[in-house]
Design a binder for these strands. Structure first.
Lengths: 182, 182
DNA sequence: TCAGGCAGTGCAATTTTCTGCATAGCGGCC
DNA sequence: GGCCGCTATGCAGAAAATTGCACTGCCTGA
């Protein structure tokens, strides 16, 4: 639903190619909206057809040429208007939780392992986020307005990660007791 | 991907009709997997075709008859096996964060309002969860194994809500400054 | 020199999800 | 007795997302 807007948002500061977008998604916006490159390419076409993006081909030495996309004035305006649209609440899908509803003395061990995996993923992300924060958002109040918004999004991700880590700890403690008692 | 499993999970303890499931989803499992009744009905058919659910029609006085679904032995086994399948990491979509990437002195006021709305939704949910927790999960260690898993899922939702509330506070403080400075 | 790999773009088929509507029974209203 | 609204189930079409593959061009290494 909001993927086209997420793409345009990624293009606010810099023009990018499809691949660049796909990669940038994984690092930053992808926290809030995951997308495969196929999806991105398709939406790039649609957005260009609408006149919200322009495209130009750029030759690269030693590599196939890229198609660089940039926001048009119309695109910027459409994006600005979209911000006022109503957000609906999030799906928030997590099948690990469904699995927990199926906890048994048989599958405890497996679930402990799954939580451990998730904990490690979360730690890795957190490490990255904190690095970004220190590098670019050390004094958020002094940043330009738009960057302060980005900071808030980053902060949400960090807090979320920290909280999730704590939950993993507690879950593993409880599951360890279940495992021992089984 | 996991909706069929979520449906089966909801049927572990009690047999239910499509409507009951849809409602129960909103209250409990829906925290982790949202589904409309249309989706649920369709998957119920598929699951019944596979032999994982059985169906029986029950007449109701003053209402149209219901079709009650229940897990078969094959269904229980399929569900138990699914727990061991690999979970992939979550999409985690949130267009409010995308909007924050577009923060400007023009739309601050709107974004403050959106965050306020979200804060209220979160508070309402939290209130409900805490009520459930107090009523049914006051002493988690004494519960049967499966219920302890449900408790952990509930705990995740509560922690998440609390954390999100704090973030809303902080975001609103920062945005208020932006608004004042504009 | 040619086989393999990678970067970059893209198509096609399928599945999942959302939106809007259809139907059928019953109760209450006035 | 006709209209409205509620419950319960369901269909159909469109949009969004996933999966798997295809093509090009250039570089590297054997």
């Amino acid at each position: 639903m909001a993927l086209p807007q997420a793409i345009m948002t990624a293009l606010i500061d810099d023009d990018m190619s499809g691949i660049d977008l796909a990669r940038s998604f994984e690092a930053s916006l992808g926290l809030y909206w995951r997308a495969s490159h196929q999806q991105i390419y398709q939406d790039l076409h649609k957005l260009a057809d609408k006149g919200w993006l322009n495209r130009r081909e750029v030759a690269q030495s030693g590599k196939p040429p890229k198609i660089i996309y940039g926001l048009t004035a119309a695109g910027r305006q459409a994006l600005a208007e979209w911000v006022y649209a109503q957000s609906k609440l999030q799906p928030a899908k997590d099948d690990l939780m469904i699995k927990l509803y199926n906890l048994s003395s048989e599958n405890v061990t497996h679930l402990i392992a799954e939580i451990e995996a998730r904990r490690e993923q979360t730690m890795q992300k957190l490490y990255l986020f904190e690095k970004i924060r220190r590098a670019h958002y050390f004094e958020p109040h002094t940043l330009p307005v738009r960057r302060q918004g980005v900071y808030l999004a980053l902060l949400a991700a960090i807090r979320d990660g920290e909280q999730h880590l704590q939950w993993c700890d507690e879950a593993q403690r409880l599951l360890a007791r279940v495992e021992a008692g089984a």
